[in-house]
């Protein structure tokens, strides 16, 4: 593995379960020091990709190297050098906050004295001091997630994997976690996360892979993805379904791309197009011009799922 800058290398990875194919030949690399996001609808293959990377699932075919080590041969060494925050916090409810960290440090074969000091540092870092000796059972969801993150950092990992780190958290807790990621990024830590919150991905991730039905649809920085798939801005308006087909006909004729979600139409304004033009084509009193977001990219690339769900 010559490329030291790539801490994760994935080549043509296929993962099949008994009855379905979860990953259908994915390839990408994650660079050292970046925050990499896997974005996709439920069941797209995000968690499967994560599990393969952190050694809780095995490849059906393909190649995967973590920190230059082959996941098929060096699973234990990889595990000793990475940190994982799984979707289910999986905390040991029989134990206190600090004991959870100590026991996990023991699984990592960290010397007892070193481990003890490290738990105190992490407890301080995650602002869990007031709960240090409390049983995990009494913690709120946000505090539990913080403890799970602390546990993921117990071995000073070279890569931190987080599966839906803010799912189910209240806004304050989410902000705390985001703020914490910013600090990790400043320290040039490598972070790999899955999410289905667009705002989170756009705000935190340096690069994003959009994944759907076991395939990578595109991979780039949030800005580049927005520029490529959406353009510079979006005009969004609401209208009745009858009017909708009339307007979309006019938009098509004028060369605009758009996405329809129920009563709402988003017109994607390309680089050589003007939003004002749309205003002339559509008569709706609920019309706004807004910045193009990752959400628009996502709907364009993987939107069929959202439509199916609603």
């Amino acid at each position: 593995m010559s490329e030291l800058s790539a801490v994760v290398q994935i080549k043509n990875v296929v993962k099949k379960y008994d009855d379905r194919t979860a990953l259908n030949g994915i390839s990408f690399e994650i660079r050292k020091g970046e925050c990499f996001g896997l974005l996709g609808p439920n069941g797209a293959g995000k968690s499967t990709t994560m599990k393969l990377m952190y050694g809780s699932a095995r490849l059906t075919s393909g190649e995967m190297y973590i920190l230059g080590l082959n996941v098929k041969k060096n699973e234990r060494e990889i595990k000793s050098r990475i940190g994982v925050v799984p979707q289910d916090d999986g905390l040991d409810v029989d134990l206190t906050v600090q004991e959870n960290l100590l026991i996990f440090a023991n699984y990592h074969r960290i010397d007892r004295k070193v481990a003890y000091d490290r738990t105190l540092t992490l407890i301080r870092m995650m602002k869990l001091e007031d709960y240090q000796d409390r049983p995990v059972e009494v913690l709120s969801g946000g505090l539990r997630r913080r403890l799970a993150i602390a546990r993921g950092l117990i071995n000073n990992p070279e890569i931190l994997f987080l599966d839906e780190p803010t799912a189910g958290l209240d806004p304050q807790s989410r902000l705390f976690v985001w703020d914490f990621f910013q600090r990790l990024k400043e320290e040039k830590s490598t972070i790999v996360m899955t999410t289905h919150y667009m705002e989170e991905a756009e705000r935190i991730c340096d690069r994003i892979a959009i994944i759907d039905q076991g395939r990578i649809l595109d991979l780039d920085s949030p800005d580049a993805l927005i520029r490529k798939h959406v353009g510079k801005e979006v005009v969004e308006f609401e209208c009745s379904p009858q009017d909708s087909s009339y307007y979309t006909g006019r938009l098509t004729a004028a060369g605009f791309a758009f996405q329809v979600m129920h009563r709402s139409v988003s017109v994607l304004i390309g680089h050589n197009q003007e939003s004002r033009q749309v205003m002339g084509l559509v008569a709706s009193d609920r019309i706004v011009i807004r910045k193009a977001t990752l959400n628009d990219v996502f709907l364009k690339l993987a939107g069929h799922h959202l439509r199916d769900q609603s």
Binding site: Y54, G55, S56, E75, R76, E77, K79, S80, V84, P86, D88, G90, L91, D92, V93, F104, Y107, H108, R109, G152, N155
Partner: peptide, 14 residues
């Protein structure tokens, strides 16, 4: 329910 084994597997334990 607790999924503790899956968590232990994150550490270098088979």
């Amino acid at each position: 329910y607790q999924k503790l084994y899956s968590i232990i597997m994150i550490a270098p334990l088979n």
